[in-house]
Simulated scan of single mutants.
Amino acid sequence: MNEIETARDLEAALAHGSPLSGLRLQDLDLTRHEERLLTRTDLEGLVVLGGRLSPTLDNHLRLHGALVFPTDPHAPVNPYRASLYQPHELYAGMENNGYEQTPDALAYHWSRDADAHHDVFITLLRAIHDDSVSDALTEFVGGAPVVGVMGGHALTRDSEAYAGAARLGHTFASAGLVVATGGGPGAMEAANLGALCPTDAVVSEALGRLAGIPSFRPSIEDWARRALEIFDDIIAIPVQDSAVRSIGIPTWFYGHEPPNVFCNGIAKYFSNAVREDGLLARSTAGLVVLHGAAGTVQEIFQSITPLYYAEADQTLAPLVLVGVDHWSREVPVWNTIEALGRERGMGEAVHLVDTIDEAAELVLSSRT
């Protein structure tokens, strides 16, 4: 492999003695390897993506044909990161300084400021960041089957619908599926919560503790603080299976939606388009759509396109909309979906049901 993302792999590459040309060093602290790197001249085409290195090493690498990509010292997040975010990482410093001084909030403002001033360098760094996150997400998920659960951010923690979404997430994760959501509040948080919890009893306890702070309005701090406390308690529970159960894929495009914390890993993007495509493309085991509005409708129609154009003999993962009245009357997209699916394989893959139990059964039965 030419991508080196850990100190251990870099140490092995240096010890092996093979040319370093053509390698990609991503987000590494090179200061501890500086003495040996300064003796190497086989550096043509070596690419250094971020990380730490001294001016002396930087000059040596460039002198011998390496490409060293710089970062913005004022960036609140690392554009070259090699791993997904963890919940406490995005909310770091909130206890002392409030949400607006967390990396999550600062990243949003950093990105918006770049748009306002047409800063091409920060635009480039955002693109690099999102590509790095996509690479990390692919490695994190591996070959595990993923089911996407979509839904709106307005669902409150004290509602029956929130509890239902949590039960749905738990059902899928207990069946061996990775639950992926848009990573925000509401239905997304509920599905991630249920997936992360190892037992039904833990789901019920978490729901009871969350109900006292039903929304991220008016206080994101209170909303996130309660969730982080519960997250810490959940991940401290000993389990035999350490597999990934819950992934959030949010975006800074929706700056008013804080990321939910009930995830094994969080893939947060600056580009909503890249984020949406990655979320839907990775939902290989199916997609369940709960109540939502404009953002959820966008996801529905984006997911329909590959179903519509699929080859006749292609096996299609199910797309299940939950809420007959909602999707046929309040937000009437079902008639369009049904019309597009006529006389195509897509027609057998799309479903409109009224309960989460029906949705779970459709997804799980499609895998047998």
Score class of each variant (00 low, 15 high):
G98H: 13
L279V: 04
V333H: 01
V149S: 03
I230F: 07
M1C: 08
Q302L: 03
A227D: 12
A191W: 02
I249M: 13
L67I: 12
I237G: 08
A294W: 04
I266V: 15
L28H: 05
G347R: 00
H291Q: 11
W252L: 15
T6G: 09
G50W: 04
V146F: 02
L352S: 02
A127Q: 10
T336L: 14
G142E: 04
G182W: 01
H64T: 10
T355V: 15
A187P: 02
E229V: 14
H256R: 11
D158Y: 14
T6D: 11
L61K: 06
S83P: 06
D241L: 10
T315E: 01
V320E: 00
R209W: 11
V203M: 05
N78M: 10
E189A: 14
V178W: 02
L207V: 09
D313L: 10
E229T: 15
R167Y: 04
Y80K: 05
G142A: 13
A136S: 11
I220Y: 05
E189L: 09
E44N: 14
F253R: 07
A154T: 13
I122W: 08
G51H: 08
V149A: 00
F301M: 04
F301L: 04
H129P: 05
R8N: 12
A201L: 14
Q302T: 01
P185S: 12
L196G: 05
L340W: 07
G93P: 14
Q314H: 12
R8K: 15
A180K: 01
E311A: 07
W223A: 08
S366Q: 01
Y108L: 13
A360I: 02
D113V: 08
Y80W: 13
S21H: 08
Q314W: 04
E11C: 09
V120L: 07
S159Q: 13
D42F: 15
R344S: 02
L168G: 01
G347C: 02
T71C: 06
V179T: 04
L155M: 14
D72R: 06
E348G: 00
L321S: 00
A13D: 08
P238D: 10
V331G: 02
V120A: 13
N2Y: 09
L168H: 00
S83A: 15
A312F: 06
L20T: 06
E100I: 13
G341W: 00
L43C: 08
Y254M: 15
D241Y: 06
P214I: 02
L63M: 13
L37R: 03
V133W: 01
A12V: 10
T6Q: 09
P185C: 08
G51Q: 05
G164R: 02
A281G: 08
G212A: 14
P198Y: 05
L125Q: 03
A13S: 15
S83D: 11
W223D: 12
G345L: 01
M94T: 09
P79K: 05
G182T: 00
R344K: 13
S365A: 03
G194M: 03
R367H: 14
Q26H: 10
R157S: 14
P318C: 03
V179I: 05
D357L: 03
G278W: 02
G292A: 10
